[in-house]
Computed example of a mutant assay.
Amino acid sequence: MSSPMSVRSALLFVFALFSAAMLGLAAGAVWMVVSLYLRHPLPWLAPPIGALLGLAIRGSVRRPGTGAMLLAAGATALAGIYVNMLIAGVQIAGNMGVGLIDALRTAGPGMLWQLARLALTPADVGWTVLAVLLAGWLAQRAQSRR
């Protein structure tokens, strides 16, 4: 029989994981909107988004430490993957003359992932790695008191 504390810890972990994933997806969607508005990919937005995710996770989802660091790094990586997959979906939708939701549904995650991977440049990867490191660093360090 499991103790109430271990069940509570497991539920808190699942909630933190879910929250970090939702923050990452939301950040990726906002990043896509800005990229589409300016009509070109903006890989340099990865570090500011990573910083925001690191601070948000440290402040709201998990106390500073290793857990917050891993959640923030994962959420930032998820945002980077998601924005590239969404942009691939937008390009498919534009080329095929269908709506974004229809294009995403028809293409499926496998095709979107392959198209996103083909469009990646070394600069994109570099900005994303920098963002993941920044998010993790900000999430793991204790908040300074003023």
Rank of each mutant, 00 (worst) to 15 (best):
S3W: 12
S3D: 12
M5H: 08
M5V: 08
S6I: 13
S6D: 14
S6A: 05
V7Q: 06
V7M: 06
R8Q: 11
A10Q: 12
L11G: 01
L12N: 15
V14Q: 06
L17P: 00
M22I: 05
M22C: 03
M22R: 12
L23A: 07
G24Q: 03
G24D: 07
G24V: 00
G24F: 08
L25Y: 12
A26D: 04
A27S: 05
G28R: 04
A29W: 07
A29H: 07
V30I: 14
V30G: 02
S35P: 07
S35V: 04
L36R: 14
L38V: 15
L38S: 10
H40A: 07
L42P: 02
P43Y: 06
A46H: 01
P48F: 13
I49E: 07
A51P: 06
L52I: 00
L53C: 09
L53P: 04
G54V: 03
L55W: 04
L55R: 06
A56C: 11
I57M: 02
I57K: 02
R58M: 08
R58L: 07
S60N: 10
V61T: 08
R62Q: 15
P64H: 10
G65I: 04
T66K: 05
M69F: 10
L70Y: 09
L71N: 06
G74W: 08
T76D: 02
T76N: 00
T76C: 06
A77M: 10
A77W: 15
A79S: 09
I81Y: 11
V83D: 02
N84E: 14
N84F: 07
G89A: 13
Q91E: 10
I92Y: 00
I92D: 02
I92P: 03
G94P: 07
G94Q: 14
G94W: 11
N95F: 06
N95M: 12
G97F: 02
G97T: 11
V98N: 06
V98P: 00
G99K: 05
L100Q: 07
A103T: 09
A103V: 13
L104H: 02
R105P: 05
T106C: 03
A107H: 03
G110W: 01
G110N: 14
L115D: 03
L115A: 14
R117F: 03
R117V: 03
L118R: 14
T121V: 05
T121R: 15
P122G: 14
A123L: 13
D124K: 03
W127M: 09
W127K: 11
V129D: 07
V132K: 05
V132P: 06
L133D: 14
L134Q: 04
L134T: 08
G136V: 11
Q140L: 15
R141D: 05
A142M: 08
A142N: 11
S144D: 13
R145P: 01
R146I: 04
